[in-house]
Computed example of a mutant assay.
Amino acid sequence: MQYISYDSRTRDSILGVLFLLLFTILTSGRVAHAQIIEPLGSMEFTGETKVGDVKVPVSVQYDSANETYRITGSGNNMWLNEDDFFYVWRKAKGDLKVETDVKWIGKGKIDDRKAAWVIRAGLAKDDPYIDAVDHGRGLICLQYRLVKGGTTHEVRSPVWAPARMILERTGNQFTMWVVKDGIRYTVGTVSIDLPEEVYAGLGVCSHDSTISETAIFSNLKFQETGVVPMDKRVIESTLETVEIDSGIRTTVYKAKEHFEAPNWSRDGKLLYYNMNGKIYTIPVAGGTPKLLNTA
């Protein structure tokens, strides 16, 4: 859940966004059948698939010296109700965290060509999915489809490429961050009911089915935690402020407790939040929360 509030007199920042994460275990689901073109042997990934309608030649090359993947892909788009792209993947189960840097080869024909870390329920072109995607023109987004055959939604990053993309799954919650010039920005958190076992990998789409585009993925990280039982999960709440112009988010307070409904004080010096039916205050710069006397 995500709560956003702000004082109309405060122009330079949004009131801290409170991310309240209540993690649940997802049930296993069936994955759609698709033809695997070729296994990737001893590489990090185990299969590659032309998802949807991909007509021109595609390829993947692994550079063991630099630990990079050079992927040439095609396809009309990864958007709306279906996707067409080249996908290099492996199976993953439960919680996971993936990271990558992306570099495009050449100027490209279409500005919206896409290179992404993609997590999918299956390999059919209309399956539910979520990805951290770098567009050729520099736009970075969190994109996702909630249900099979549904439309694609997106949350845009406050900064543009080049930037490191990070996507993490915890239960049915997915959070994306980007790191640029040493600063970490939160893109967003969404809930998607994906099965416990998913496909996770790298995708490239040329945004034009008659051509191909090539991207290099570097500094890849893949961390698979596995399925965590509900009684072992931890509720953690984080209170943040977000600068409108820069998109920089600053953590004010974090605790392994359920708190919610933040708001500004009238003078803009304090933040209020609710926990266990009581109201607490904390300085905008951070510090120790204090119980507000409402008697």
Rank of each mutant, 00 (worst) to 15 (best):
N274P: 03
G268L: 04
L239S: 01
A261R: 05
L291Q: 02
D245Q: 14
E260R: 13
D245R: 14
P283L: 03
I235R: 02
T294N: 07
R266Q: 13
G287D: 01
G277D: 04
S265C: 08
I282E: 13
G287M: 10
E240M: 15
L271G: 01
A285L: 10
I244G: 07
E243F: 12
T241S: 13
D245W: 00
R249D: 11
L292R: 01
V284G: 04
F259V: 13
E236L: 03
T288H: 02
K290N: 04
L271H: 09
V284R: 13
I244M: 03
V242L: 15
L270D: 04
V242C: 02
L292Q: 12
G247P: 03
R249E: 14
K269P: 02
K256G: 11
S246C: 05
K278A: 14
G247L: 08
Y280I: 07
L291S: 01
P289K: 00
L239T: 11
E257R: 13
I244Q: 13
N293S: 13
N293V: 15
L291E: 08
Y272Q: 06
Y253N: 05
Y280C: 07
A285E: 14
K254G: 09
K269H: 05
P262H: 08
N276T: 01
N274S: 15
R266M: 01
L271Y: 12
K278L: 14
L271I: 07
K254M: 11
N276E: 11
D245K: 15
N263T: 15
V242W: 09
M275G: 10
N263Q: 10
R266C: 04
I235K: 06
T251A: 00
N274V: 15
A261W: 04
I248R: 10
P262M: 13
A285S: 15
G277I: 03
M275R: 14
A261S: 11
W264L: 11
I282K: 12
W264N: 02
G247E: 00
T251I: 13
R249P: 09
T288I: 04
H258N: 15
H258P: 10
T241L: 11
L270F: 07
V284N: 12
K290I: 07
P283T: 06
L270W: 13
P283E: 08
N293K: 14
T294E: 13
R266L: 14
P262V: 07
K254N: 11
A285F: 10
A261M: 14
N293Q: 12
P289S: 00
E257F: 05
T250D: 09
D245P: 00
G287I: 04
W264Q: 07
N293C: 06
R249T: 14
Y272T: 12
G277M: 09
L291V: 04
A255R: 03
T241R: 09
I244D: 10
